[in-house]
């Protein structure tokens, strides 16, 4: 990744404001995504991965707001852009796929119209032209009989088909960056495998960069080249995928990988209990002051409680935030 990155997030802070209270939901998150690269953001519910993604396209709602930081897309700071500039970018240069395709699609419009709308909106096509392009777009996401399917409403399709339509909409204008927020969590495993394969093929063909958000390490391993691990609003580790699974550096990552039941690991006549990460995920209102993983960490020492550890560089674009990493 020698060329300047497509997207660079620098020291992003996202606050939740209620009255005088200000909670740091996301603190000091930095990462970058190169052209054509798939970057994964992994974490548990409430760790801030989804709102980080929403902040990239200016879709945070009150009480959430970006406190400080920079989001550079092709060198331009998205946080300095006004509403209409952002709207021109959204769906056109940066697009997004959500977890639940049923709620993300308009139930009262045919899927054909919803795809065609993108061409009308961002490429100035006529509706007639756009419909032709919509059929082509549906064919590209391997929906059978696309000329008939464009007349379907979302409820007439299965979950997997709806997610294909979402992908068709998201990729309609050949965006530079696709943000996929748990795109397959609501789907069955065999459908998930098909959708992931499709996303990978289409994005490879077009050189689209992907920000993949998931809690599923399997999905991340399959799709991404690099990955960032988030825990309670901090980006605690950023690594190349293979390194992460072979030599996790942060105790949280380490614990997470050790706690997974792994196919083929169970022995015939003994059952070892899984290695647990003790304790519970802290709630937003009760984030610890220093390292946020400290209360659950086996390697914790007094210094962890006092100050958030800075990044220790492990190599190109890879770091860990831990005093006791290894």
């Amino acid at each position: 990744m020698s060329a300047p990155p497509l997207l660079e997030v620098r020291n992003l802070h996202i606050d939740m404001r209620s009255g005088q209270e200000r909670l740091n939901v996301v603190e000091n998150v930095s990462f970058s995504i190169g052209a054509g690269e798939t970057f994964g953001l992994v974490g548990e519910s409430g760790c801030g991965k989804s709102i980080t993604a929403l902040s990239l396209i200016g879709l945070l709602n009150r009480p959430l707001a970006v406190g400080q930081g920079e989001i550079l897309f092709k060198g331009q700071n998205l946080l300095k852009m006004n509403g209409s500039e952002l709207r021109r970018l959204r769906g056109n240069r940066i697009s997004m796929i959500f977890q639940e395709p049923m709620t993300a699609l308009n139930p009262l419009a045919t899927v054909g119209r919803q795809i065609a709308e993108m061409f009308v909106l961002h490429q100035g096509s006529t509706w007639h032209e756009a419909e032709r392009k919509a059929i082509a777009a549906l064919a590209q996401v391997q929906v059978p009989a696309p000329d008939k399917r464009i007349k379907n409403y979302p409820h007439q399709m299965s979950g997997g088909m709806r997610q294909r339509v979402m992908i068709a909409i998201a990729l309609a204008c050949h965006p530079d960056l696709l943000i996929a927020d748990e795109p397959t969590t609501a789907l069955d495993v065999t459908v998930q495998a098909e959708i992931l394969k499709l996303m990978q093929e289409l994005c490879d063909q077009r050189g689209t960069s992907v920000l993949m958000i998931s809690h599923d390490l399997g999905v991340i391993a399959k799709m991404c080249q690099r990955v960032g691990i988030m825990y309670a609003g901090h980006l605690v580790e950023e690594r190349a995928v293979a390194d992460l699974f072979r030599r996790p550096a942060h105790p949280y990552t380490h614990g997470l990988l050790a706690s997974l039941p792994v196919l083929g690991q169970r022995k015939l006549n003994e059952r070892k209990p899984l290695q647990e990460i003790e304790g519970i995920v802290p709630s937003i209102a009760a984030f610890p002051t220093g390292c946020r993983f400290e209360p659950r960490c086996t390697r914790a020492s007094p210094i962890c409680r006092d100050a958030v550890p800075g990044p220790s560089v492990l190599g190109d674009y890879s770091f860990v935030r831990c005093y006791h990493h290894g």
């Binding site: 495993v189 065999t190 998930q192 495998a193 992931l196 599923d216 390490l217 399997g218 999905v219 991340i220 391993a221 399959k222 995928v241 293979a242 699974f245 072979r246 990988l257 997974l260 792994v262 196919l263 083929g264």
Partner: peptide, 24 residues
């Protein structure tokens, strides 16, 4: 079932699981 899956559907399910360690 896990060492010798026989039915094509079982094998298909097993193949679809994104297991990070086997992928790596």
């Amino acid at each position: 079932i896990f060492a010798n899956p026989v039915h094509p559907y079982t094998r298909r399910l097993l193949a679809a699981i994104p297991d990070p360690f086997t992928i790596i």
